[in-house]
Lab assay of single mutants.
Amino acid sequence: MSIQHFRVALIPFFAAFCLPVFAHPETLVKVKDAEDQLGARVGYIELDLNSGKILESFRPEERFPMMSTFKVLLCGAVLSRVDAGQEQLGRRIHYSQNDLVEYSPVTEKHLTDGMTVRELCSAAITMSDNTAANLLLTTIGGPKELTAFLHNMGDHVTRLDRWEPELNEAIPNDERDTTMPAAMATTLRKLLTGELLTLASRQQLIDWMEADKVAGPLLRSALPAGWFIADKSGAGERGSRGIIAALGPDGKPSRIVVIYTTGSQATMDERNRQIAEIGASLIKHW
């Protein structure tokens, strides 16, 4: 067993022997301040990774656009098919120029040779490549099948209805392509620590998230040296922004954090800054 596999296998073990965790309302004060600064709703939840206990939450059962955070769930569904012998990570998928959609920095470079399922998941999570996500959605049967996968996990809230990039439209009061912070946090925890996926697939999923290259201005910008984070960000229309993450000190994750916002007129930089400040408060009061 590799060191990384050992780390993920012992996530519940280490967490069980940690000192009790206590909620700190100071972080919620910052979440509410972010709402004021952005002029928009902000949803927040913080779960203990081992027990699933909610440590703090704000608007945990209000719907927010998922945006690209759905790509972690998508690759979880792909990995479940791999575990069941219905898919192979090494299978190569070929596609054409007509398949390319807006923001496809990886797939646009491989029109000639195609990409493997493993490479597509890596591109979808680490670079948020939209064509990679659409190609992977095709392998599982489309958005409705991802929703069905989530329902089978016990998540009857999260739903995907459309493809990239239309799913980022974020129309107010439109339930399409949305989740709730509580539902997303619980589902992410199941994917990373539950028995739904094999140990190898859980490790692969967290490795992809740990290698995320496009979430630097968010929670990662607030992390002290030595902290662990595996995350996936999302951005959408109407001032929408979000991030889902597993993080913790001492090089291992111990909490799940989900943050979503929508309806702001603020710039992307300002949305990023507010999420980073929430992260800084979380870490300060850990």
Score class of each variant (00 low, 15 high):
N134Y: 03
G141W: 03
F13A: 14
I256P: 00
G251A: 12
R118D: 12
H24Q: 11
I45P: 00
A245V: 04
I275D: 00
P143E: 05
T138M: 13
R159Q: 09
H94F: 13
Q37M: 14
D207E: 14
T147Y: 04
L247H: 01
M1S: 01
T158V: 04
V257H: 01
G43K: 00
E35P: 01
A200P: 13
K109I: 11
A280P: 01
S240K: 01
T179G: 01
L218S: 03
G236A: 10
P20L: 02
R92C: 07
P253F: 09
T158G: 05
C75K: 00
P65S: 05
V21D: 05
T138P: 06
S57E: 13
D129Q: 00
L135S: 04
K30E: 07
L89S: 06
P143W: 02
E270N: 09
T267C: 10
S254T: 14
L199S: 10
V82G: 05
S68G: 00
S57N: 09
I45A: 12
I140K: 03
V31E: 01
N50H: 12
D250Q: 15
L196H: 15
D212K: 04
L247V: 11
C18R: 01
H5Y: 12
L219W: 04
L38K: 06
T147N: 11
P20H: 10
T69E: 02
S122H: 12
Q203D: 11
P253S: 09
I244E: 01
K109L: 14
D36V: 14
P25H: 13
A222Y: 09
I93Y: 06
Y260L: 10
R92S: 10
E145D: 11
I283Y: 15
D212C: 04
L120Q: 02
A9K: 12
D177E: 01
E61S: 12
S80D: 10
G239C: 03
G39E: 15
I11L: 08
Q88M: 11
G142K: 04
T69L: 02
R241G: 05
T116C: 07
S221G: 10
E277Y: 08
S281T: 13
A23S: 07
S201W: 03
E87P: 02
E175N: 13
F13M: 15
Y103R: 03
M180D: 11
E56H: 08
M268W: 09
K144A: 14
G76D: 01
L120T: 04
E237A: 15
L199F: 11
L47G: 03
D113A: 10
D161Q: 05
I229G: 02
S240V: 02
E169Y: 12
P181D: 00
F70L: 05
T147Q: 09
S240I: 01
R92L: 12
D231I: 04
P224Y: 04
M209L: 08
I229S: 03
T193E: 14
A84L: 10
K190V: 12
T198C: 10
A225N: 15
T179P: 00
V257K: 00
M127P: 01
I259E: 00
L28C: 07
V82I: 10
E56K: 11
I243C: 08
G216P: 05
E87A: 07
S68Y: 00
L120N: 02
G154V: 04
A211G: 13
G234I: 00
L146T: 04
D155S: 02
K252T: 12
G85W: 06
T131A: 11
L160D: 02
P165W: 05
V257E: 02
M180C: 14
F17G: 09
A183N: 09
A16P: 09
W286Q: 03
S281M: 11
D231H: 04
M127R: 09
K252Y: 12
H156Y: 15
G251L: 09
A211K: 13
L55N: 07
G194Q: 10
L79H: 01
D36G: 15
L137D: 01
A276V: 10
I125H: 03
E270K: 13
W208Q: 03
F13N: 03
T179C: 05
R7I: 10
W227S: 02
P12Y: 13
T178V: 05
L188Y: 08
R92D: 06
L49A: 09
T139L: 15
L100A: 04
T139R: 11
Q37C: 11
F70E: 02
N130T: 02
S233C: 02
T107E: 01
K144I: 13
L73Q: 05
L74P: 01
R59Q: 06
E56P: 00
I11T: 08
V214H: 06
E108V: 13
W286S: 01
G141I: 05
D33P: 01
L38E: 06
K53Y: 13
L146S: 01
A40D: 05
A132S: 08
E237V: 10
G154L: 05
T267H: 12
G142C: 04
E62N: 07
E35Y: 02
I140W: 03
L137K: 01
F64E: 00
I244Y: 02
A84T: 14
V78G: 01
L191Y: 07
N130P: 00
E270V: 13
R63N: 07
V157P: 02
S221L: 10
P143I: 05
P172A: 13
T186M: 15
S96Y: 11
S240C: 08
A15N: 06
C75Y: 00
E35V: 04
G39L: 11
A84R: 12
G154C: 06
L19A: 15
A84V: 12
F22W: 14
D161E: 08
T126V: 10
S221T: 13
Q86H: 13
S2N: 14
S68W: 00
T131L: 06
S240N: 07
H151N: 15
T116S: 10
V257Q: 01
Q203C: 02
A124E: 01
A132R: 00
K232Q: 00
P60R: 12
E195K: 10
A235C: 04
A133S: 11
V117S: 03
R202D: 03
N168A: 08
E195Q: 13
R7G: 11
D207A: 15
R92Q: 09
K32P: 01
L282G: 03
S96A: 13
V258G: 04
S254I: 10
D129W: 00
R91D: 06
M268E: 06
E210C: 12
T147W: 04
L73G: 06
I229A: 05
E108W: 08
D99P: 04
F14C: 09
I256Q: 01
T116R: 06
G242P: 00
T267W: 05
T126A: 10
C75R: 00
M66G: 06
T116W: 02
L219Y: 03
M209R: 00
D129A: 00
Q204Y: 09
D161V: 07
K30G: 05
P25L: 10
V42K: 00
S233P: 05
G226Y: 07
R271Q: 10
L28N: 07
L137C: 06
